[in-house]
Design a protein around this nucleic acid. Structure first.
Lengths: 198, 198, 198, 198
DNA sequence: TATGAATGAGGATTCATTCAT
DNA sequence: AATGAATGAATCCTCATTCAT
């Protein structure tokens, strides 16, 4: 029970922390944060609950650490975005990159989306909200007409929805992703045009 | 404890069931389903937990009953929509009405949105999914290009997002609602045009 | 829902008390006393729990009433037995009649047998114990050798066991009952002979 | 609360599981399964209810574990019995050993006897029934006359009854046990003779 | 002769967390 | 780097019982 010499355990040495994160995210995304117990995570890893506490101070900290590790690219994207001129080209580039970032950390973002009520009063709740806010600040032109502001926002949510919700549409996921991106880009373009952008 | 002769209790007679639903929805929407305990609901109503069980068999049943009572308009809307010709006019009328229906049961829909992970394995999860599915079946033209299918879907999600997510935008909520509706209508129109509609 | 004019309800008028006893005994025997709730009894009768309380002061009282109504024959038997001479013939007659009495109130006695732990601290517990005691006092000869006392006792328990436990033996229940009775009679005879009875 | 340095706690280290079983059996036998709450068990052990759940998954599991630990001798006895020739000598040896086994785990068997209704739909119910069944298969000769089959069975129940029910008879328990055994042996002998044994 | 509405006490179970080893 | 044993607080839920109508 639990090979000691077959290399399985050997290879695992030292990366327990990451393995905890992996399994936790998997379960959080699958069942939700509240419904995933530390017992469950521990069992799936074949360690004790106490072991989790060696690596993380609390259940919440596990989630925080996952969040921080996985959303760095978006943090970077926003930082990059702030320094660019707020042209249509920049906005479209951001939308493009944002779509990629979402796709790359899909389980985390699906989790965030489906557990908003829970996440809201966790430490990452505010953090996440601020991040989305800053993203919007870059894309949404505050001087645009209200309709166009909605269009910008809708573009972002189209990406979100496209990633985790439109699952039963179209056969080829690649093709679907392209379609989603196209609609989002289009919304941005319309909004920009409406605002009288160059 | 809790006036006996001042009419408070008197007026409450017989409407406990509804009062439970009201308080429950309020708390579910505010804190999420899992984080709302029956103790909390009972305390706020100044009754015992056991009283809740007189009116509902389980915690889940409370939610189910709320859901069933509040989503009847949407059920009706879908039924009506199925019988209409699938023209642009019909689709736009449905979008318009759907926006109204959402606004009228806003707390419930915000709850559904923010507690997807939880709701998914409750009895209403499937129910809700099927309903959304049927709504989409009416609006989305299966013969349209993939981009246009995404546009139709995006229109629906724009309504959802508009209702509960875009809270900090614009000053007048009425005005904001109109803007959201306009974008959704526009998306439907574009999709329809793309599909070669009249 | 619940015919008012079809005679069903009509005929039931007034015998609710007996119907409660019937259903209660049925469920007590089937599931045990503790595991049978008043809700269950009420539901099966299509009345409310409160209705049970109109007819009986407590759950225990329902059982007591059943017990008292159904064990009268045994009470009579014992009374009769005390007045007879303690001959072999008397003892055998008692065994015979006891077997019949058991068979006639089988569900109650199976219940008593299978719920001894529970029944022990109910009001009928002592009552039942005393009754069995008095029965034994008539049958068991206190001057007999210990082995023979055990034989007398064993005769009684053979009847009990025969009634509810030996269910999977023999095909014809009638035939089985005769065999059980024969063994019991035999044990009494042996005991009597050992004691040097006439 | 509960000596820390006086050795009491020290000595307890590691044997909590067994202590739970001991106290549980004691209470189950005394009050019945349903009427014994985990709170009661925990209190008597001066631990929390949660501690019980560290050692056993459910209340039922506590009972199951007791049952399995204590009935091994009987399991062994049956296994041994199956391999012997079905002679009178074997049967009598089994009866003798069974009497001993019963005496040694008396609280458990009294519990099983007095809580049949409850035990029936617990996991051990079937288990127990099968065990008794197999014991009977060894002792009872299926070709014997019905009366003799009843005699064999009666022998087993005489042992049971003798152990827990005939408490107020005779002064010396040792002597009583011998008498009970003698009657059981006698019943087996009679049955065997009737069946045309040597 | 019943019901509708409620209570108070208690049930088993689960959870995140702690700490000595 | 991890375990074994335990806790305290909370959870949902069920039950027998009451009482005004």
């Amino acid at each position: 029970m639990g090979g000691t010499m077959d290399g399985t355990r050997q290879r695992r040495r030292g990366d327990t922390r990451r393995r905890i994160q992996d399994v936790a995210l998997e379960l959080f995304a699958e069942q939700g944060y509240e419904k995933t117990s530390l017992r469950e995570i521990a069992e799936r890893l074949e360690v004790t609950k106490a072991a989790l506490y060696y690596h993380f101070k609390t259940k919440e900290e596990i989630l925080v650490s996952i969040f921080e590790d996985l959303t760095q690219p978006i943090e970077d994207l926003i930082e990059w975005g702030r320094l660019q001129p707020h042209t249509l080209a920049t906005k479209q580039e951001i939308v493009r990159r944002y779509a990629t970032a979402l796709a790359e950390a899909e389980p985390l973002f699906r989790f965030m989306h489906e557990n908003q009520a829970t996440v809201r009063d966790l430490r990452i709740g505010e953090s996440f909200k601020r991040r989305i806010q800053r993203l919007r600040d870059i894309i949404v032109d505050p001087d645009a007409a209200l309709v166009d502001q909605v269009r910008y926002t809708s573009a972002i949510f189209t990406l979100h929805a496209g990633m985790f919700l439109i699952q039963d549409m179209g056969d080829d996921p690649e093709e679907k992703n392209r379609a989603v991106l196209e609609v989002a880009m289009d919304l941005v373009a319309q909004a920009h045009r409406g605002a009288g952008g160059s």
